[in-house]
Design a protein around this nucleic acid. Structure first.
Lengths: 190, 190, 190, 190
DNA sequence: TATGAATGAGCCTTCATTCAT
DNA sequence: AATGAATGAAGGCTCATTCAT
């Protein structure tokens, strides 16, 4: 018998993202995804229960990767401006380098189908962030605010700009990038 | 007769938003929308060329309303912090009061179908903002930055929080709201 | 708008029977039935919820017709041999003249899908028979037996022969028919 | 090795009957049958050309067993009422004890797929019956009728009742059984 | 021999859209 | 203008069957 290819799951994931980003959610059919992945549509059903199952798992997979993207292995997380800057830059780099995954994910975080997954997922979303924010607040590095507020003030502007640029096809020069970080930082720092 | 028409178009718009937000994009069929709007599916084709046409026009309609939401009629736009705060609050109020329209719009701004509309639309997006930002920069009220940056720094955090709260069902108390505005303002003010 | 054709339901019924008897149950697809009925497959779904619903309703429809077939309108049902013979002959004529419906029905009475319908249906199956059998027993025309036994002894042999002949393509001459009735009658008469 | 094969074929047969009777013909897929038989679906294709081939062979197998069921080994077949009664009872016992096989077979005797097999099969159906009936007619034990008629008059009623009871879940008490045989016998005896 | 992986064909069903009234 | 009826096309999914080990 042939060996069930673990790599095949990722081929399907990549194909799904590609098709969905190209043709939208409604334009994405299992057969299109299958063709893009160079497998038979029936094959997808060997790896997933159904379309929803596939989308959910794909969503969780990308979400997990994104969650990890903030923190490079071995890097320190002492509460300092430079730590925040590193995290911020990591995030920026990840979403620009994986713009398709990122767009896919943003598209779906609002989708009713995904929201129950989302709810459950949010709970264990980012314990690392919780910790970092708390100690930063304790050391009076940043303002005492709800963690969600901090997160949004820090990351929402750059995320929003990346998405906008995706559409227009522009890129943000490094100078501007620093400027945006400094502004975001100012909004939360004490 | 003209009035009757217009009223029906908006009934269809409201129904479409309702169905789409309830069942997702793929779950929204013309017949479901028709039923929700209490018309026959065939009737929709008297007012729109096809489904895409309807979605596009709906998108533009909501986008226009959102664009107007920032500025209350007759209000002054002299470049001052309080002007910015008013605009910011207007925006917040509008999206919380019209959360369905807002979610719909956000959902679709990333959708391939909408992006050509978006591109064209963005150009004449908000001349008022351009003006306001430019004079504010000239008077050194805010930092000299790309207008897109200013816009994102000012609005992206609160938008992001509203969406997150939509899912979790929470609401932001007024105190917190002020805090968020102050933070956002700090990120762009000089 | 076009008028919903009540005759269309019967066209679909006829087509379904034809296809099912020709190609068997597994060989019968909605599209084949649709083609046979000269309608689009989608049209069938205007009249029935789904395939099972259609089969069930078809089954009930034929069953009802068969139930009525025993008794010609206006005919007497006094308990006498000639009454039984008339009923018996009516039944024979009906199933030979509607052999397709009959075969379809026999095919499905054993099918798991149909058996819940069947169970419910059996209750009000044939009150007329109950009555006739009871009075015939009371007048000592026939033996005192369970009504089901009477029914089977009377009709099962001829039904079985008709089905066998359907396959072989033979027909039963009138002489033989009388002989079979006389035999069946002997098995229940006192 | 030969033994192992045979055992597996019968495991497949049993599984097929089980699945088909449980879920109907359309609900019976090769993989379900395979799972029920505890083999891989591919394995079935080592023993049968395809699904039809399997069903046909299964049908012939059960039909053969049923054909043998009438006659217990070493029993006498002199033309007498008691011989007929023995045969009749044997048949009854067999179909009640092997109700699944019996139901399966009845289900398929009307199925187009099976009817060519049936036609060919009928020829050498039951030479023993032919013989018995002929001598019984010659000795004026039973009426001079077509053998098919005799067969149907004798067995169709009890078969029909067994099937009906299968559905309703009842059983026939011995007293009634004798009564039914006596009735059936009266219909053919001289 | 035995089997998990793979797939083209086909099934049931729904959809966006048009037709006829 | 309005709509129920109708449908070709497509979608998700399963199946009988074959492949490769």
């Amino acid at each position: 018998m042939r060996i069930k290819d673990d790599e095949k799951v990722h081929r399907i994931y990549r194909a799904a993202i590609k098709v969905i980003n190209r043709e939208g959610f409604q334009g994405s059919s299992m057969s299109k995804i299958a063709k893009e992945a160079n497998v038979s549509a029936a094959t997808i059903y060997l790896y997933f229960d159904n379309k929803d199952d596939m989308i959910n798992k794909l969503y969780i997979s990308t979400k997990t990767k994104l969650g990890k993207s903030y923190f490079k292995e071995g890097s320190e997380l002492s509460p300092s401006k430079s730590t925040f800057r590193n995290i911020w830059i990591n995030h920026y780099q990840y979403i620009t380098e994986n713009i398709d995954e990122y767009v896919f994910q943003e598209n779906f975080s609002n989708c009713p189908l995904i929201q129950q997954v989302e709810k459950k997922y949010n709970m264990d979303y980012c314990p690392t962030f919780e910790e970092l924010f708390e100690t930063a607040k304790a050391t009076k590095l940043i303002l005492p605010m709800d963690n969600d507020f901090i997160y949004s003030l820090l990351f929402a502007p750059i995320s929003s700009l990346v998405k906008k640029n995706k559409i227009s096809g522009n890129e943000i020069p490094m100078n501007d990038l620093i400027q945006i970080f400094e502004s975001s930082w100012r909004s939360i720092s004490q």
